[in-house]
């Protein structure tokens, strides 16, 4: 082995999840197409819908989260990510400002449920099974619940934007998205 060659780079461990989102950002992730092959050269996936691993390993390098926080379970998952990931990334409009789910914030959650669970002639029966996570009074963006290190806007961010963002980050650069890549929709 050539002593002067740089040591082989450790692969970074990446975890991802979707909270109050629509998986659109994850779909867009897959839109980086064949570049995903380049990506897996650089990273290993931990907890993620892609791997079906259920909990974050400690010492993940990157946590990428789509969706805002709308219920108690979202909060727990988000805390798990924050605890185990060195860098946390809010991906997509919902993660960044609550997005479409947060449009319910202009209504009272009690009124919404009363309307949704109203059964003609049988009154309102809102499920109260302890297995079901309770909804928060309002939907919140991630950075109102834990510290977020980077934001990747878009609804969803395009495959190109995700690629540019991740390659910047993996190379140790502060990610920037120029014209055409930065989008709120």
């Amino acid at each position: 082995m050539n002593a002067s060659a740089p040591p082989p780079k450790r692969k970074l461990l990446v975890a991802t999840t979707s909270l109050a989102g629509c998986f659109g950002c994850h779909m867009s992730f897959l839109d980086i197409d064949e570049r995903i092959l380049d990506l897996v050269e650089l990273v290993d996936f931990d907890r993620s819908p892609i791997t079906d691993i259920k909990h974050c390993s400690p010492n993940c390098d990157l946590g990428i989260i789509e969706g805002g926080v709308c219920n108690a379970e979202n909060v727990h998952v988000l805390h798990e990510f924050r605890k185990n990931c060195k860098i946390l990334i809010a991906m997509g409009a919902c993660a960044i400002n609550g997005g479409l789910p947060a449009q319910r914030n202009s209504l009272d959650i009690r009124d919404i449920l009363a309307a949704v669970y109203a059964q003609p002639g049988r009154g309102v029966h809102i499920p109260n099974d302890p297995e079901i996570p309770l909804l928060l009074n309002e939907v919140h963006p991630l950075h109102e619940v834990v510290k977020i290190d980077y934001f990747l806007p878009g609804c969803p961010p395009s495959g190109d934007a995700i690629w540019k963002f991740l390659t910047d980050l993996l190379a140790g650069r502060t990610p920037t998205l120029g014209h055409g890549l930065i989008h709120y929709d």
Binding site: I96, S106, H143, E144, Y150, P153, H179, Y184
Partner: peptide, 19 residues
Amino acid sequence: LAYDLGVMDPHFPQYFSKR
């Protein structure tokens, strides 16, 4: 303008004002 300035996030807590 937000795009041009590179605003990636709203940073501050949302008001969620009812309008």
